[in-house]
């Protein structure tokens, strides 16, 4: 029985794995981006084994050393190994990026479905979305962190909230378009309960755009975390994160620019890779969107 169901799978549907391979190999730039991303994720996951030194141990005699055999990228103002700190710093950035993307997409999906489907909710929700979008995201995040104190949770909330309205808008517009489709009108006419219509007909229409939007949110969350830490409104300075390392290196910039520039390079390359992959996924999943140059 199971063999038969597999055999009648509609033609033209490619397995997710084949799809991924196709996207990754679509251009050399995308392949490089994917390789870099895998390296960043692996080094963050395996930091305890890869990092040559303890990222938080202070060695005052080794302050602000230039790159050497022992300290590949030199040391910071407290004699901590810069390379190890950057490896560990990736953990925070990746957690923030992935968590923000997932939470923002799920909450945006639910609110967007409601707004797109129920008139009176739409009117209220969209005014709220407009209001929230009028507040510059960095300022909003700064306010939340300064009120609630700096912790990983606060930073996560502060980064995710400004991303939600954009998802709501995207989902709403997709739902509004899908509602006009004959199959949705047929379902409404047949008396299908709204919840089922949303799950069966509306949600599937949002999946591809949301995957794409999710990658952009991931990139932008990592960027925002770096900026918040840099401004001193991020997570606890003791925990190495890419932003924190740069924030501490600021005053020593003229002595050892590497403390700011190396993590800066890593964070830029990581975000660039995610964005390039996002673009590649977009081109593969939804050619129409590529043409319109969907806003990020």
């Amino acid at each position: 029985m199971t063999d038969q169901t597999a055999a009648i799978r509609p033609p033209g549907r490619v397995s997710p794995l084949a799809r991924t391979r196709e996207i990754v190999l679509s251009s050399p730039l995308v392949t490089i981006a994917a390789v870099i991303l895998v390296l960043v994720v692996l080094s963050a996951l395996l930091a305890a084994w890869i990092a040559p030194h303890d990222p938080v141990r202070l060695t005052p005699s080794q302050r602000l050393k230039p790159p050497s055999e022992t300290y590949w990228l030199g040391t910071d103002a407290f004699g901590r190994d810069l390379f190890s700190r950057i490896i560990y710093g990736g953990q925070i950035s990746l957690v923030v990026g992935v968590a923000a993307a997932i939470v923002a997409v799920i909450s945006g999906l639910m609110l967007g479905l409601l707004a797109g489907y129920i008139r009176w909710i739409d009117a209220v929700l969209m005014r709220m979305v407009d209001g929230l979008m009028a507040i510059p995201s960095i300022l909003l995040a700064i306010a939340i962190v300064s009120l609630w104190g700096a912790s990983l949770w606060t930073v996560l909330v502060a980064i995710t909230i400004p991303e939600v309205p954009r998802v709501v808008r995207l989902v709403r517009s997709l739902v509004l378009a899908a509602r006009e489709e004959p199959y949705v009108e047929a379902a409404i006419a047949a008396g299908t309960p709204p919840f089922l219509i949303m799950r069966r007909h509306l949600v599937p229409n949002t999946v591809a755009p949301l995957i794409i939007q999710g990658t952009y949110i991931c990139a932008s969350a990592i960027l925002t975390e770096a900026i918040l830490s840099f401004l001193g409104a991020g997570i606890n300075p003791e925990t190495p994160s890419w932003g924190n390392i740069m924030a501490e290196g600021r005053i020593y910039f003229q002595i050892n620019p590497g403390i700011v520039l190396w993590p800066g390079l890593v964070v830029s390359v990581a975000i660039l890779s995610i964005n390039l992959l996002g673009d590649a996924v977009r081109d593969a999943l939804d050619p129409r969107m590529a043409k319109r140059g969907i806003e990020r």
């Binding site: 960027l223 840099f230 740069m246 700011v260 520039l261 830029s268």
Partner: peptide
């Protein structure tokens, strides 16, 4: 794409250096 990826302060410090 670079403009969306490189943090402003990294650009700033590159300019300074």
């Amino acid at each position: 794409v670079l403009g969306f990826s490189v943090p402003v302060f990294v650009i700033g410090y590159l300019m300074i250096s």
